[in-house]
Write a protein that binds this DNA or RNA. Structure first.
Lengths: 219, 219
DNA sequence: TGCTTGCATATTGTATCCAATATTCGATAT
DNA sequence: ATATCGAATATTGGATACAATATGCAAGCA
């Protein structure tokens, strides 16, 4: 006898659980740039030994979310204005390509979901809401491309800059413009204009880049 | 007193050494698709305990070079024709963009280096030679872009598919065409025609994709 | 005071040991 | 013969213990 469903729900390893939790904390900005990740401290928080903690930190390092130095430990990786600029350029390139591939294959359900995220975004009250709904809105528009490698790279890139994206949205002119541009992108998708959707996505990202850089350099 | 040079040569951790060695073995194809990575076995090879081995495997998993299952271990990650096709598309997109950014900033030394790699490629005798020189040739042309995030993503992508790239070059029509196309790309760089260099790079990669897919599907 | 030196403490890196799970293989029943 | 069960073995996941290195601090000295 074979009952697959029983084996499907694999309990995650402690290392994975710790990794997800730390990643969330970094992405959401609860751990600020440069904040140290002490193995002992984290191990106590999760009631484990340091071994799974170390594996979690190793994963984070591979993702570029922390930087470690031998015998000195890991700290949350920051981002310089130059890096930020480059990453936004990268996003424009890849996300533009992916949405262009996705539009012809985009289902009505996807469009409806996107619309609901757009609404939730405009009704959001906190930077966390804006960030979450913004990300949901964009990634749902990419999903139907079926380009899993691209999607994975985009996810990792967004993880890397999520904090800064949120900060950018919270700027004075961030929200209103994002809303306007989201509306235009979704409209292009709805009328199946892949080229225009891609163009608008690129402009949306590059505009956010300018906005963010003005702010980063100001500090 | 400050003597920097003494502290520069950091001895790498065992985990890092093992990671580099395993990565090399996977990239070079010494460990074939699906080959299991036994922690005990590897630990003995490096005269260490399994702890650094596990961290090395964790790194490889994050890179997508191995796939692990809880309590079952890690095996070298293969690649399906669909994934291969997508990754070659991704390469065309990103590498085309990066070389376009690099050409205006490309130094004469870079061009000379590229020429030397091109020569070494054409004179190579084994798939390993071809693969190495091919990769050197391409990446040197990207370097002067200064787009470090893009460069990092490209490196990881090439690591992921290095084995298949090598196999593609070794196909009957692989070498001669690669040589011809490399020559054309380099010529465009030398006359500072960024647009053309980018276009040729994209065509070069997409052509290789077709060649590879024909071969993958045949098996 | 300002600087070095050496020790105590803190932190990370690794080895060893135990626990949890998977796999193999033989015995048994049908 | 084939299928099923269960114990023995193999393998991975994690806890504890120890080693290597970094950091902070206080004593000593100019």
């Amino acid at each position: 006898m074979q009952i697959d469903s029983i084996n499907i729900a694999q309990t995650a390893s402690a290392a994975t659980i710790i990794y997800e939790a730390l990643k969330k904390a970094i992405i959401e900005g609860q751990l600020a740039d440069g904040a140290p990740l002490r193995q002992d401290e984290i191990a106590k928080m999760f009631n484990t030994s340091r071994i799974p903690v170390r594996e979690a930190i190793t994963m984070l390092e591979q993702q570029g979310l922390v930087v470690t130095q031998r015998y000195k430990g890991a700290v949350v990786a920051g981002i310089s204005p130059d890096e930020a600029a480059e990453i936004w350029d990268f996003r424009a390139l890849v996300e533009g390509h992916v949405i262009e591939a996705a539009v012809p294959r985009m289902s009505d359900e996807t469009l409806e979901l996107a619309r609901s995220y757009l609404t939730a975004f405009s009704e959001g009250a906190t930077p966390m809401d804006w960030g979450d709904q913004n990300r949901k809105f964009h990634t749902i528009l990419y999903r139907d491309s079926g380009l899993f490698y691209h999607l994975g790279v985009i996810e990792k890139t967004l993880d890397r800059v999520d904090r800064y994206l949120r900060a950018q949205l919270a700027l004075s002119n961030g929200l209103a413009r994002a809303n306007r541009e989201h509306e235009a992108i979704l409209a292009a998708c709805e009328r199946r204009d892949a080229t225009r959707a891609a163009e608008l996505t690129r402009l949306h990202i590059l505009g956010a880049k300018t906005n963010l850089l003005d702010n980063l350099r100001k500090r």
